[in-house]
Nucleic acid binder design. Structure first.
Lengths: 251, 251
DNA sequence: CTAATAGTGTCTGTCAGACACTATGGC
DNA sequence: GCCATAGTGTCTGACAGACACTATTAG
C-alpha cells in the first residue's frame, strides 16, 4: 500500500510524522542610496545551532497565533521593524530532509519592501541584534545561518525580475514622492541608470501614481511635483510581449 | 516572551505543534486540442471528508520517503501518470487554520506540464478514478474537494502568465514537433490565435529549438521541418521591457 | 544673471503584427 | 493543373532610448 494513503485509511492524522514549519523574510529597503536587507543576529546559546550567526528574520509557525502563513510573516516582520503594512509577497517554499541540522523542515520564504523611515528596529524575541546590510552584487557579504544565503538569493532574484516590469520600487518610498525619487529607487534596485524621458512616459502611461494638486517639493532649483500611489494595495504590471491582439481574435 | 522564541529557549522541537503538510499538483496537458487537467476522485469512505469529490492529485508529505518537496510532488505525479520527468514548477504554499476541515494545514501547490501520449493513467493508492478534465474559461466546471478550485485557479493563472514570455508550451508536445505544432499549443493555452510570421521569428530568434537535419513530417501538402528542444531542461525566457541599455551604463 | 534640477520635444532604430506572397508536397 | 499547409518578405505603426531643449526655482 502506498505510504501516502495512510491518512485516507483512517490512520489518525496525529500519527503522521510532520516536518518543522518555519517562515523567513527578506525585508528590503533603500537606505543611503543602497538596497539593504534586514538581518538578525542569533543569540549566544550553547544549545542552539548557528549561534551568533546573522540570519533572515523568521522562525516557527505558531498555529495558535497565526491564522495563515501571511499573518505569520507579518507578525515576524512587525516584531523586528514595528511596521504593519509593507508590501509582502511569498517567494516559495523550500523543504528537505537535510536543509536544517536536525530535522525534515520546510521554510516559507517571503520578501517585503518598505520605506526605512517607517522602521523602528527592535531586537526583542530571539534576536541579539538587528541591522540593515547592503546588497553588493546582489548578495550580502556575510555567511548566514542555515541555508539563508540561498534563501536570500532567491528573494533577491525574484525582486530583480519583478522590478523590470512592475511598480514594486514604489513601495520603497514614503507616501509622497516625486518622479525623480521614483526613478532613483528603480536605478538603485536595478543597479543601472534609466533614461528620464522614457521612464516618465512609462510610469505616467499607467495610472500607478497621481499628482497631489498644487503640492511640489521645494528646492534650490525647479521644484518637483509630488505624487502618491493611486492604489497602494495593487501592484502595477507594465505591458510585455506576445501583445494582445484584438484584430486577430476576431478572425 | 514572544511565542516564537520557544524553540530558541530549548523547548524541545518535538513539543511545537505542527500543521499538516501536503502537496497538490495541477497536471496539465493538451488533448483533443484542449488544455486539460488531471483530477482524481476521492474514495467512498465514510470517515473521509469530501468523499467521492474530484480533487487535484496530491496528499501528505512523507518525511520517511521524500527527500524534499519536489521529490514529493514527483512521487505523486508518477503514481497517477507513470511519468518520470515532466516540467514541474512550484506555484506556492497556501496554509491557514481553516482551509481544511479539521486542522491547521499547509499545501504546496505545483503545476506540471506533460505530453499526454506519455501518460498511463493509474488509479492506485487513494484514487477511485483518475481522468482528464478540460479547462473552460480557465476553470474546470466542477466543484472540487477542499479549496482545490482556488488552488487550480492559482496554478492556471501562473501557467497563463508565464506562457506569454516563456517556452513552457513546448513541454506539452512530444519530443519531435514542427513549428506549426508549437504555435498550435501556444494558441490553445493562450486561447487566442497568433500571427505565424511573428511567432516563427520570435521562436527562431532564440536557440530554444533546433531542426532535426533532413527530417520532415510528411503530409498531403508541403511537409514541415521537425524540431526538438535544444536544451530540454532549461526554460527559455523571451525578452521583455526596461531593456538593458549598454550605452547608458557607461555614462 | 548662473546653477541645478524638473520636465518636454524630437528623432531614429527596432520590432511585432498584418498580410500578401512564394514553396512544396499529394493528388 | 488544384488544394492545403509550410514558410518568407514587406510594410507600417508603436514605442523605447538618445539626447537636446525648455521651465522654474534660489540666490
Amino acid at each position: 500500500m502506498p505510504k501516502d494513503t495512510k491518512a485516507l485509511n483512517s490512520t489518525p492524522l496525529s500519527l503522521i510524522a510532520r516536518p518543522l514549519v518555519t517562515v523567513d523574510i527578506a525585508i528590503f529597503t533603500v537606505k543611503n542610496e543602497k538596497l539593504q536587507v534586514l538581518l538578525v543576529k542569533r543569540p549566544n546559546n550553547e544549545q542552539e545551532h548557528f549561534t551568533e550567526k546573522w540570519a533572515l528574520p523568521g522562525g516557527f509557525l505558531d498555529i495558535d497565533i497565526d491564522k495563515d502563513l501571511n499573518s505569520c510573516a507579518l507578525r515576524k516582520l512587525k516584531e523586528k521593524t514595528n511596521v504593519n503594512s509593507p508590501y509582502l509577497e511569498q517567494v516559495g517554499a523550500w523543504g528537505s530532509k537535510d536543509r536544517a541540522p536536525t530535522e525534515w523542515s520546510i521554510t516559507h520564504v517571503y520578501f517585503a519592501l518598505l520605506n526605512s523611515d517607517k522602521v523602528i528596529l527592535q531586537k526583542g524575541g530571539n534576536a541579539a541584534e538587528v541591522a540593515w546590510f547592503p546588497l553588493i552584487d546582489n548578495q550580502v557579504k556575510k555567511q548566514l545561518a542555515f541555508d539563508h544565503n540561498e534563501l536570500l538569493d532567491l528573494a533577491t532574484q525574484r525582486l530583480h525580475a519583478k522590478v523590470e516590469y512592475t511598480s514594486l520600487p514604489a513601495y520603497l518610498l514614503p507616501d509622497e514622492f516625486t518622479l525623480p525619487d521614483l526613478q532613483k529607487v528603480y536605478e538603485i534596485v536595478l543597479n543601472r541608470p534609466l533614461d528620464k524621458s522614457s521612464f516618465r512616459t512609462r510610469i505616467l502611461s499607467t495610472n500607478l501614481i497621481a499628482p497631489i494638486p498644487n503640492k511640489m517639493r521645494p528646492a534650490t532649483h525647479r521644484p518637483a511635483q509630488l505624487y502618491r500611489l493611486t492604489n497602494p494595495d495593487t501592484l502595477t504590471y507594465f505591458p510585455r510581449s506576445f501583445k494582445y491582439n484584438e484584430k486577430a481574435l476576431k478572425s
